[in-house]
């Protein structure tokens, strides 16, 4: 492998049913930063795979893609790991990018490692940051042990240098409506013939999300095991609703079914949030959870235990019973709104 043959920073854009995943924009923002750090700047390219997806290309251009490779085919309508991998592996082998970024999403975390074996390269998983070092190589910052430790991962002798990035960690770049970009079409027909058809998608099923999605909320009201019951949990729902925010949680409320599902969980195996205000109620602050909320703006924590680790990462500490404090807070906000009921 001659490393010099590999040039350019690629972002594999993720779309589903004609809707781009916002992690693709975050990746483009980071790709533009990496471009500036390289000894000689290399182009930023987005790869868009699916059926009837070309109309999404300008959106990728507006967020930093200089070239968009559109791979449009009826056989690519639904994500099938083997099918997508055949197409992308051929594209990578032909065009030889030096860096390849994907979202650490349900699909990205499945697809990236397959490509790693198919094109014989390393993949740094669910990174929280990326940079270029003095050797002009990619350095991926990867959390381990629930975020307690961060490690640098390099891929010095193989190309492309692949990394998946956790959604919500980097933030979305500015949109530029005047951006210049080119669109290149790529015909995947030959690659599709290699797919043995061992994995066949039958359909997508989506859960309706009530209110503001957690990852987009500017105010997050999160609760933990210490809330004690589904009844007490309603206080979090009520406060979030009053503030126009979203409810998040740690693992136990998911297991106890106080929340609808895992999509409300914050942390290493859940979502990463960075709201302007985070209110944590009866959360002890295990590293798994802290890793998913540490970049929030104002962090307010309420816990009975003055030694709870969450207090070490909080701006405002309240040692007390979450139920009592939240009930009173809800009452006061209602009073302010002239609605005592």
């Amino acid at each position: 492998m001659n490393l010099k043959d590999y040039q350019g920073i690629w972002v594999i854009a993720e779309q589903m049913a004609g809707c781009l995943n916002s992690v693709s924009f975050e990746l483009l923002g980071k790709a533009q930063e990496l471009k500036k750090q390289l000894q000689t700047p290399e182009p930023v390219t987005a790869v868009l795979v699916g059926k009837d997806v070309e109309e999404l290309a300008p959106e990728l251009g507006a967020y930093g893609a200089e070239e968009i490779i559109v791979v449009d085919h009826p056989g690519l309508e639904l994500y099938q790991n083997q099918t997508y991998a055949e197409v992308l592996a051929d594209l990578i082998k032909e065009k030889k990018p030096s860096i390849l970024l994907m979202g650490a999403t349900g699909i990205g975390q499945d697809l990236a490692p397959i490509l790693g074996v198919k094109v014989n390269t390393g993949v740094a998983a669910h990174c929280v940051d990326l940079r270029i070092n003095q050797d002009n190589n990619l350095v991926a910052v990867v959390p381990a042990f629930g975020g307690k430790v961060l490690g640098d991962i390099l891929c010095p002798k193989h190309r492309p240098q692949m990394a998946t990035l956790k959604p919500g960690v980097l933030g979305k770049p500015e949109r530029n409506n005047q951006a210049h970009y080119t669109i290149t079409k790529y015909d995947p027909a030959e690659s599709l013939k290699k797919d043995a058809g061992r994995v066949k998608a039958l359909g997508i099923y989506r859960q309706e999300v009530k209110g503001v999605p957690l990852e987009e909320a500017e105010i997050v009201v999160a609760g933990g095991w210490g809330m004690g019951s589904k009844e007490n949990w309603q206080l979090l729902e009520e406060l979030a609703s009053l503030l126009g925010g979203a409810v998040g949680c740690t693992r136990p409320p998911v297991d106890e079914k106080w929340v609808e599902g895992e999509h409300q969980m914050i942390g290493t195996s859940g979502k990463t949030v960075r709201p302007k205000v985070y209110i944590g109620a009866a959360i002890s602050g295990a590293t798994h959870h802290v890793c998913g909320m540490k970049d929030s703006g104002l962090v307010i924590s309420i816990n009975k235990d003055p030694k709870a680790p969450i207090f070490e990462v909080s701006d405002i500490r309240i040692v007390g019973d979450a139920k009592t404090i939240l009930s009173k807070l809800i009452e006061e906000i209602k009073k302010i709104r002239g609605n005592v009921n």
């Binding site: 961060l150 490690g151 640098d152 991962i153 390099l154 990462v313 909080s314 405002i316 006061e332």
Partner: peptide, 27 residues
């Protein structure tokens, strides 16, 4: 293919302020 580089502990600490008093005062 991937090789480990440095490892470090993330700096997470915040200088917190404690709110004290009766529930009404805290709220």
């Amino acid at each position: 293919p991937t090789q480990p580089g440095d490892i470090y502990t993330p700096e997470l600490g915040r200088k917190g302020q404690e709110l004290t008093g009766e529930v009404e005062e805290i709220v």
